[in-house]
Write a protein that binds this DNA or RNA. Structure first.
Lengths: 193, 193
DNA sequence: CCAGCACTAGGACGTTCGTCCTAATTTGTC
DNA sequence: GACAAATTAGGACGAACGTCCTAGTGCTGG
């Protein structure tokens, strides 16, 4: 019980620090200090830095699956997609400070040529598949995946620029533009042919 | 003469390494090794790591200004904007491996809380102002800046996702979509009122 | 031809990194 | 209450980091 509690706290702080300071720039001392434990204790729970990175990615995968599942309760597919788009608004403060957690981690791991890059990119895969499902529900048989990637790319772009500019008005304007795009997207349900 | 030649080679390699491996992950030994000089020699040309980062950013600012100036020879504003969009195609191999040099550096410096972040963001400022000029030339008086930021954000999004997915077809599809968007954008020249 | 300066090499510095080890403490079980 | 296992603290390890220092080299101007 105590074991998993400490492990949980380590993962939590590591997750936040990897996001806010970057994976490479976050040391074991940083995490241990944030959790309030010794470095030695650390190695009882995680045997290496890559090990805790794996745990953080697993954590994010699980959290993402849970979030997508929660959104599945929304009746209309367009409302589900709106839920995704509006993460940008909900998390605007953190996004303007540190960008998107998924995009920035994947980018960093790509530069580090790190083995975990593909696993981090799996988080994108979850969003991609889920969004494609929604677009298929809107009747977009053939271009569902392309539309999903389009929404993902637009969101990533907003996150990068909002972080670079520290400009909330820009972020809100681009989210509105994306919502308009979605609204004008033809709902092809029952208009087959 | 010899001085500036070595300095130039250091800046060149540092620029590439900061892009491909990241600023934090690139050590002085890495740069010195890539250039083929000793670490001691390094400090005769640059007094600190921040110093060479400054030089690299200055270098990129100058290169960007030169590129934009070259594009100014294109007659039609839409063609100029196309030149910008097509960087994604021209540099696709590097972008799929390391993302956008401007976006990834700005993102990393934001996480590091580095003083040079705002200077790195100035590169975005150059593109932003130049793109806004082109949209103004197309008659977009009031929304020129918003359109410029939109193009920048779309491009950044493509770069992030292309790097995460390592998918050239996606990159080309999104560039096409952006070109279509630009093509359908009303040219408001001489249609005032 | 020599004095002075820019340049280069290479090692020393203190610090921090990720990792490992050992010893103490807590916890759970019979 | 004793004993084994899990948990914790804290220091030691070598390597690598950014930085600094010193000594040697080569060009240049008087």
């Amino acid at each position: 019980m105590s074991r998993s509690a400490t492990r949980e706290r380590i993962e939590e702080k590591a997750d936040a620090l990897f996001y806010e300071a970057g994976f490479e720039a976050t040391s074991f001392a940083d995490i241990a200090g944030a959790v309030g434990i010794s470095r030695g204790n650390f190695y009882h729970h995680f045997k290496s830095k890559d090990d805790i990175l794996d745990a953080v990615i697993s954590r994010r995968l699980t959290a993402t699956r849970a979030m997508l599942e929660a959104w599945d309760t929304d009746a209309a597919p367009k409302d589900r997609i709106l839920s995704f788009i509006r993460i940008l608004i909900t998390n605007r403060t953190k996004i303007m400070a540190f960008g998107c957690p998924v995009g920035t981690l994947t980018t960093e791991l790509a530069k580090l040529d790190h083995i975990a890059e593909s696993r981090a990119a799996e988080i994108f895969g979850l969003f991609r598949d889920w969004l494609a499902d929604q677009f298929r529900a809107l009747g977009h048989k053939d271009d569902a995946d392309a539309l999903a990637l389009h929404v993902l790319a637009r969101s990533q772009g907003v996150a990068v620029m909002a972080s670079a500019l520290k400009d909330e008005a820009f972020l809100r304007a681009e989210v509105s533009a994306l919502e308009t795009w979605l609204d004008r997207l033809p709902d092809q349900t029952s208009t087959k042919g």
